[in-house]
Simulated scan of single mutants.
Amino acid sequence: MKREKRLEDIMGRLREGREPISGTTLANAYQVSRQIIVQDIAFLKATHCNIISTNKGYILMNPPGKQKIFKVFHNAEQIADELYTIVEAGGQVIDVFIIHKIYGEIKVGLSLSSIRDVDEFVVNLAKGKISPLMKLTDEYHFHTIEAPSDNILTIIEENLREKNYLV
């Protein structure tokens, strides 16, 4: 398959999909290496396609909703509650990032938009498969949250403030 056709097909799959698609899944589907898929995604991003890379794969954010960055503080036992608070109100946790004194900004895409997504994330934390970035900054961290409207972002902010997670 020629590259142009593969790029069209990848965009079609991303438009139709509601869940992230892994690079390995795409590589297997097109019988190319995962590195070729990484290059294809980079090219599509450079052509202004709103593709987000997450720990679960690639997802097309179309159309983009309203976004807001929240600075939060809580302990490790409160991670699940914080994330459930956001997704239950209709938000999507796009990423988590910290501002490290030495390394600067460290950001990881999350793409958590449902209770199931949060459940899976929390299970992986408990298994030790991943470690929260907040450990590097005394539990302070930021989330980019996306929601369909400013009203939902306001509700999320109020709920996080009520639980004393906002800084």
Rank of each mutant, 00 (worst) to 15 (best):
S111N: 15
L112Y: 02
I106Q: 13
H143P: 02
I145K: 05
T137A: 02
G91P: 03
S131T: 12
G104N: 07
V118F: 01
I106S: 01
G90H: 14
L112R: 00
L125T: 01
P148A: 12
G109K: 12
S111R: 13
A126I: 02
K135V: 05
K107E: 14
K129W: 08
K127C: 13
I145S: 03
L110Q: 10
V108E: 09
M134N: 08
H143D: 03
I130W: 14
V108N: 11
L112W: 01
D138F: 08
F97S: 09
N124E: 06
E120N: 02
V123W: 08
K107A: 03
S113Y: 04
E146P: 08
S114G: 05
K135P: 00
I99K: 15
D119R: 00
P148Y: 11
K129T: 01
V96I: 09
G109H: 11
Y140E: 10
N124I: 01
F97Y: 08
D138P: 05
E120H: 12
L112H: 00
F121T: 00
I145E: 02
I145P: 00
N124H: 13
L133G: 04
G90V: 06
V108K: 15
T144V: 13
S131V: 11
I94P: 03
P132T: 03
L133A: 07
V87K: 05
G91W: 05
I130A: 10
F97I: 09
F142N: 08
I94L: 11
H141P: 01
T137E: 12
F142C: 09
S113T: 09
A147L: 12
H100Q: 08
E105R: 14
P132M: 03
E120L: 15
K135S: 09
A147E: 05
G91A: 14
D117C: 06
K127R: 13
G128D: 07
K135D: 13
G128T: 14
F97H: 11
M134A: 04
A126T: 10
L136E: 07
F97M: 10
A147F: 12
F142E: 00
F142P: 02
M134K: 11
S113K: 15
I130T: 15
I130Q: 15
A126F: 13
L125Y: 00
V123P: 10
G109L: 12
I102R: 10
P148K: 01
V96W: 04
V87N: 03
I102K: 07
D117R: 02
F97Q: 01
